[in-house]
């Protein structure tokens, strides 16, 4: 029972990381109608930046996190400007291939700078752990902080898109770029803004992910990236609560699957879920079906 509780918390914590990454996928998909497959690699860059800040430049953890966010935000804007903006009117296949290209580019840049050897990432959010039930249940500060960060981010983003002028403009652009432009909204700036927010969140996800799973190498971001993409589709791509639910459920399935079904099959289960969801409800759990009304 206590073992199960521990798996549950780990699952929610891992799921929270997926949810934060899935948000980036979802927001960018919503506004630019593209799958940014380089998103996972932005996470990796964020993790490396915070790693360097601690290891080589001896910055305090909070400064390392801020640095990672700033670098990833800038990187997100740069990627959008240089790789995706010129393809605004191109077919979605060209954009998809470009996104995969950017993903490879980032991985290889990381390989060039930091080498292929895995780095051992030192947790940036380690404040000890909580022990319950006479030492049978350990809850690490990483678990707590990851879950808390996820909740805060979800609330903040929901308020941002629901209440602020810029957030509403973002929703307008994601529905109809032409109509948004006619409102006086600068569509290009809004798209840049979305990439900036998504990439900033990716940096946070990178720090949290590597704080719990401390192996850092150039491919660290790709698997979580793909799983978060699965989570976004699972929950309903383009929806904030969808990313949250998709992410958490996916984390739970992965951890519980590994614990009770098979360690090897944990990842397979995750993708089996994607296939089932796509078969049964192609728009995802909370996905909206857009009706055209004349």
């Amino acid at each position: 029972m206590i073992q199960f509780l521990s798996y549950l918390l780990n699952g929610i914590s891992l799921g929270s990381v997926y949810a934060i990454i899935a948000l980036g996928y979802s927001m960018v998909y919503g506004i630019a109608k593209m799958l940014n497959f380089a998103h996972g690699d932005v996470i990796m860059i964020g993790a490396y930046m915070s790693f360097c800040a601690i290891q080589y430049w001896s910055l305090p953890p909070i400064a390392a996190i801020v640095l990672a966010i700033v670098v990833c935000t800038a990187l997100g804007i740069l990627i959008e400007r240089m790789a995706y903006k010129p393809l605004r009117t191109a077919t979605s296949l060209s954009v998809l291939i470009t996104a995969i290209g950017v993903s490879w580019l980032l991985q290889n840049i990381a390989l060039l700078i930091w080498g292929a050897n895995p780095k051992s990432y030192q947790s940036l959010v380690n404040f000890g752990s909580l022990t319950l039930f006479d030492g049978q249940l350990h809850i690490t500060s990483e678990t707590f902080i990851t879950i808390a960060a996820n909740i805060i981010i979800m609330i903040a983003l929901t308020l941002f898109t629901g209440k602020t002028k810029m957030g509403k403009a973002m929703r307008a652009v994601s529905e109809d770029k032409g109509a948004a432009e006619l409102m006086g909204i600068n569509v290009n700036a809004t798209i840049s803004m979305t990439f900036a927010i998504g990439s900033g969140l990716a940096a946070i996800a990178g720090v949290l992910l590597c704080s719990s799973y401390p192996v850092l190498m150039p491919t660290t971001g790709s698997m979580p990236g793909i799983k978060a993409f699965t989570a976004a589709v699972f929950g309903g791509i383009g929806s904030i609560p969808g990313a949250l639910i998709g992410g958490i459920l996916l984390g739970l399935i992965e951890i519980l699957g590994k614990a009770y079904v098979s360690t090897e099959l944990g990842d397979a289960l995750v993708f089996a879920v994607l296939i089932i969801v796509l078969l049964v409800k192609p728009t995802g759990l909370l996905g909206k079906k857009v009706h055209e009304k004349v």
Binding site: K165, K168, A169, R171, A172, E175, D176, G178, A179, A180, L182, M183, G184, I185, K288, V290, H291, K293, V294
Partner: peptide, 26 residues
């Protein structure tokens, strides 16, 4: 200058009020 486009193109998933707020964006 304002254009009320062909096919109306209101923001389908936003409320009436939010649509109007977007109209006053500038």
């Amino acid at each position: 200058m304002a254009l009320c486009p062909e096919g109306r193109r209101v923001f389908q998933q936003m409320t009436v009020r939010e649509n109007l707020e977007m109209g006053g964006y500038t």
